[in-house]
Computed example of a mutant assay.
Amino acid sequence: MKCLIFCLSNLVTLVVSQPGVNPLPSDVLVIQNLNGQCNGIANPLIRKLQERNSYIMRSHAEERTYYERSKNCVMTLIGKLGYQWEIRINSFDVYGETDSAGNPTKCYDYVKFYDSERVDNAKLLKGINYETGLCGTLTPSTVGQLLFRTCANILTIQFYTLDTQKGSSSEFRQGFGLELIQYEWTNPTGGPDCDFDLNGIAPGMWRDGTFSEFQNSWTDQPVIPGYISGGAEANYDKEIAGITCYVCQNCPVEPFDPVRDATGQDTNCYRCSKEWDQEYQIAKRACYTRTNYLNFIDSIREIDEPFIGCRQSVDQYSRTRNYCFCDTDLCNWATRFTWSKVTLCLVGLVSLLHRLLI
Score class of each variant (00 low, 15 high):
H354W: 06
Q37S: 14
C248Q: 04
L4K: 14
S217D: 11
G230C: 10
S70V: 00
Y110C: 06
T343E: 13
I128W: 01
K80Y: 03
Y110G: 00
V16F: 07
Y293H: 07
G191T: 13
A232I: 05
G204N: 07
T328S: 14
H354L: 13
N332Q: 09
F6M: 11
R321L: 06
Y280S: 15
E62V: 06
D193M: 09
N35L: 12
G242H: 00
K112D: 03
S299N: 08
I41T: 06
I240L: 12
N187V: 00
T343G: 14
E213S: 03
V15D: 04
Y280L: 13
A61L: 02
V342Q: 12
D329G: 00
P252N: 13
T132H: 04
N90Q: 07
L4C: 07
Q32P: 07
P188E: 00
K274T: 08
L178K: 03
I282W: 15
G177Q: 14
T132Q: 10
G36A: 10
Q145P: 01
S116H: 04
V247K: 04
N187S: 05
S54F: 11
F256A: 13
Q158C: 01
R355T: 09
I5N: 08
I46F: 05
P188C: 05
I89A: 02
T139C: 07
F337C: 04
S351G: 05
K274W: 00
T186A: 08
I308N: 15
Q32H: 09
F196I: 15
T189H: 12
V350G: 08
G191W: 00
Q165G: 00
A232M: 06
S168H: 11
R311D: 09
T13H: 14
L198D: 10
I56D: 13
V21G: 03
Q312H: 08
I303G: 06
C251A: 14
L162T: 07
T13C: 12
R207A: 06
T76Y: 06
T13D: 12
R52D: 10
F159R: 11
L4H: 11
F196R: 15
D99I: 06
L147K: 14
S116M: 00
C38E: 13
R311M: 13
G136K: 10
A42R: 01
M75T: 13
N33Q: 04
N322H: 13
